[in-house]
Design a binder for these strands. Structure first.
Lengths: 212, 212
DNA sequence: TGTAGATTCATACAATTGATTAAAACACAT
DNA sequence: ATGTGTTTTAATCAATTGTATGAATCTACA
């Protein structure tokens, strides 16, 4: 067995560099050479430690999405539980808040989380199909939970409508979080907005749309 | 000078194949070999007729975006003119309708337009920066017009807010139009929805969000 | 200190990329 | 029919891609 910290250093360097570069240039747009260059490790290190570029992608996603989804799931279910306890339907706004607030908080606090969230937005359109598939596998249960909760909150709307309004919400959210890294308009600063301000910016929009 | 129809056939074959493949796999994900293969022309034809892959991209975008933007601009300005004539502010819903309805109508009617609209959604996240830049150049004036119109319609909101709500709207719209090609859920069919149904699905959401 | 196992390293591999070239094939006016 | 300018074709270019290999280096325990 080797010294833990050494191995961890290399693996973590690769994961961190991948997270950053995947956010900036996408999975398909990032070569292992610039990736290992940024991580300051040998080119072969990726295949040695992860097996392949695709396996690295899975590791990058899993590392961040697992704890994030855990929080979001807890928060959403807490909203449903609270509503049930009070004998009423959950509110769509509360559900969205329970999903969005941890996402943006996470994005603000955790190291590299901003890159990761940007990466999510990018992945929906990656040239490589496997990227979408892998992401889908990790996101699907969370989306399903949101769907259930929203059906409770908005019983007068068909499942069809709710489904597509949730898609619209996801598109709005991740597109905005993705491109806000690109935009550097002088008077329209959002890049450095804190989590609360971003929630205040985005939540009312999504909430109104869901209930419309 | 050569026979017009021959040259046009080759160039158009390339443009059509590019449109389709760019929608399916993105610009960076499409190689000139599979592209010329699909178009049933020689590999060198792209560089001969367009100069480079990037020049082809510009041609693909320009061909469809120019007439589409012309219609949308006319429609949006008609909404503003009508409101001014009646001495009132334009309605946000009318502005959105003037933008979205031609987009979805176009998507439904014109040959290859569905692919093109899908391609737009994909391009926001293409690994190649130049794709985003080229698209931005063509979309920017239209976005600016929407921004102006919305400031008229929603004078109580800051330019900042309107800007980001428009971004949210664009994200919602193009993400949904993009992924709806992927989704084939048995009971949640949207793929073959006609333009009117899609407007009815999307417009209330965006409208409520903008006004929220 | 010496050895076994884990890690790093430089190098090479086959495949694919966009682009270029020169010759062949073509169209058309004279 | 001949010649001219355009288009198509096959072949090749250098560059980049993810991956694989074997030797070198390092770590930890005897």
């Amino acid at each position: 067995m080797n010294l833990q910290s050494e191995q961890a250093d290399t693996k973590d360097s690769i994961l961190n560099a991948a997270e950053c570069l995947f956010a900036e240039k996408g999975y398909s747009g990032t070569s292992l050479r610039v990736l290992t260059g940024k991580a300051k490790v040998n080119l072969a290190a990726v295949n040695y430690h992860f097996g392949s570029k695709q396996a690295l992608l899975e590791a990058v996603i899993k590392r961040k999405i697992t704890p994030l989804n855990q929080i979001r799931r807890k928060r959403v279910e807490e909203v449903r539980r609270q509503a049930r306890k009070e004998g009423r339907r959950p509110d769509a706004n509360d559900i969205l808040y329970a999903f969005i607030e941890p996402t943006l908080r996470f994005r603000e606090n955790e190291r590299g989380a901003k890159d990761f969230v940007t990466f999510i937005g990018r992945s929906f359109a990656d040239p490589d199909d496997t990227v979408r598939k892998i992401f889908f596998r990790f996101i699907q249960p969370m989306f399903q939970l949101l769907l259930e909760a929203m059906r409770e909150a908005l019983p007068h709307l068909s499942e069809n409508i709710i489904f597509w309004r949730l898609q619209l919400s996801m598109g709005a959210l991740f597109h905005t979080l993705h491109i806000c890294e690109d935009i550097d308009m002088d008077h329209l600063n959002i890049k450095d907005l804190d989590a609360d301000s971003m929630v205040n910016l985005i939540l009312p929009y999504l909430s109104a749309g869901m209930k419309s």
